[in-house]
Design a protein around this nucleic acid. Sequence first.
DNA 1: ATCCGTGCAAAGAATTTGCATACAT
DNA 2: ATGTATGCAAATTCTTTGCACGGAT
Lengths: 125, 125
Amino acid sequence: MKNYSRQRAAILEMLKNTKIHPCAAEIYAEVRKTIPNLSLGTVYRNLDELERAGKVQRVAGKFQTDRYDGDITQHAHFICTKCGKIEDYSLEHKLIADIMRGRSKATGFILNYFGLCEDCCKEKQ
Amino acid sequence: MKNYSRQRAAILEMLKNTKIHPCAAEIYAEVRKTIPNLSLGTVYRNLDELERAGKVQRVAGKFQTDRYDGDITQHAHFICTKCGKIEDYSLEHKLIADIMRGRSKATGFILNYFGLCEDCCKEKQ
DNA sequence: ATCCGTGCAAAGAATTTGCATACAT
DNA sequence: ATGTATGCAAATTCTTTGCACGGAT
């Protein structure tokens, strides 16, 4: 996938330079400052595209709106259960080790991993 | 919260007895076999209620539809990137340790944890 | 009698899509 | 010239909500 549209490049750029893990509407509002006639549909299409190309990741969570992260290195997220803020943590962070061992005050964590299930592995194609 | 409606009890029961981590529509279809005039709004209202009461959990993920889990013990999910199937794993499972150490073939994992961020901790109330 | 939950249908929010036009190669 | 991406608006999909009625305590 090439990045030859201004829109796509600007969306990717914006995601690389923010720490707020924005949703589509927030990306739209921000990039519109540079490209005023940007449309929301274009944001959605490009987020799909960028995600499938592995240049961006959707944050796994319990949001009512998809949130995106321009940092595709392996890291953990802390998600505030009150305000929804998302913070990045390295996997080596002490807090994470504490949580995994049940020694932290955080209310909980989720560990989800991805891959092909057995059935899908068997299928040709 | 009491469980004194047939509908709520049936929804909870269904979630406790399935391993498919269903979405609201799947719960609706299943419970309707027993309570044919059940409405979808009631399913949504009860899922909210049950989640807030901690009797059920929404699965954190990248779905386009919320998925629910009647197992509220701490465990991990394996999510197939092709068909979307969700499988349960205990946190002690060897595969998880392997993934955490980068020794597994799974494409990736996410570790998200929840709690109050600093700002929200500071707020009165 | 009171409170809470329900079914139904309408409303709302988030996301996707069709189409004619415009841009990149 | 050809591919692909865009803006716009309509359409879909998922979820929430208002309201009058029914069931539980």
